[in-house]
């Protein structure tokens, strides 16, 4: 058997995987643990079991308002990034030598978001004064756009271009070709991109921190402020709810599209 891996190495690999899992997941487990502790101090392992911090979080105006702001923002960003990014991906997939344009579209992935954030703040302030919801919406759409573009382009690269050619020879106009042929081909890519766009916007903290103002605090910004000031079990409860949302998104992503496929693009 040439594929055989020495037994000691197999064991070592298992130990390594367990340690890596510990490293990757421990911070999340700990947050969940703190959130159900009875003690009002941050402690892990938790003392006792209580859900009172969840009641606290749901009763807090700051957190609830921040949650609705984040949710509204993420929903709109999902819509705008998927529409704009999907359209751009369809156009790019038909151009020859669209490499330079594609690089340009993916550039928000390469440029650190702190640099973009500070530029956005400065430009917005010089043009319109105080930052607003619209500023956040634009900024989040810019950073979510490359993800939609990449997932959609990956799907289109694997799809058969002659399907559309066939529809054309049979006399379908381009709106009909788009609706009946191209869009169905893109669907898995668009869906994966939409998931990522939602997730990125909902979790994003850098742009939201730079563009925040007293009436414009997203959930991650609210959490950050609390952590800077003094972490308490209530913020752990809010964080746990964010983790639960992420888990839900991942399960949906896997059910609808298959994680294996999404991870390798």
């Amino acid at each position: 058997m040439v594929k055989a891996v020495p037994t000691w190495l197999r064991w070592l690999a298992w130990i390594f995987v367990i340690l890596a899992a510990l490293l990757l997941l421990a911070p999340l487990v700990v947050v969940v643990g703190v959130s159900v502790s009875e003690s009002q101090f941050i402690a892990f392992p938790p003392n006792g079991f209580s859900l009172k911090w969840y009641g606290n979080a749901l009763g807090s105006r700051e957190y609830v308002e921040a949650f609705w702001l984040s949710l509204r923002l993420a929903a709109l960003v999902t819509l705008s990034a998927t529409l704009i990014g999907g359209a751009a991906a369809i156009a790019l997939s038909r151009r020859r030598g669209g490499q330079a344009l594609e690089t340009f579209f993916l550039s928000p992935l390469v440029i650190p978001s702190i640099i973009f954030a500070i530029g956005m703040l400065m430009l917005w302030s010089s043009l319109f004064g105080v930052t607003s919801f619209l500023a956040l919406w634009i900024a989040h759409t810019v950073v979510a756009l490359p993800y939609v573009l990449r997932t959609t382009l990956a799907v289109l690269a694997e799809s058969d271009p002659f399907l559309e050619e066939a529809a054309r020879t049979m006399g379908a106009s381009w709106p009909r070709r788009l609706w009946h042929v191209v869009l169905p081909q893109c669907r898995p890519g668009l869906a994966a991109g939409a998931f990522f766009a939602f997730n990125i916007s909902f979790d994003e903290a850098v742009l939201s921190l730079f563009l925040r103002n007293p009436g414009l605090n997203t959930l991650p910004v609210q959490i950050y402020g609390q952590l800077e000031f003094s972490p308490d079990p209530t913020v752990a409860a809010v964080s746990t709810m964010m983790i639960v949302l992420t888990v839900t998104l991942i399960v949906l992503l896997d059910r609808l599209l298959g994680l294996n496929r999404v991870a390798s693009t």
């Binding site: 421990a26 947050v31 909902f202 994003e204 903290a205 964080s239």
Partner: peptide, 14 residues
Amino acid sequence: MTSVVVRTFGWMVL
């Protein structure tokens, strides 16, 4: 896919 803020909180506890 979990917010950096949440993960950093975990490390603060750890």
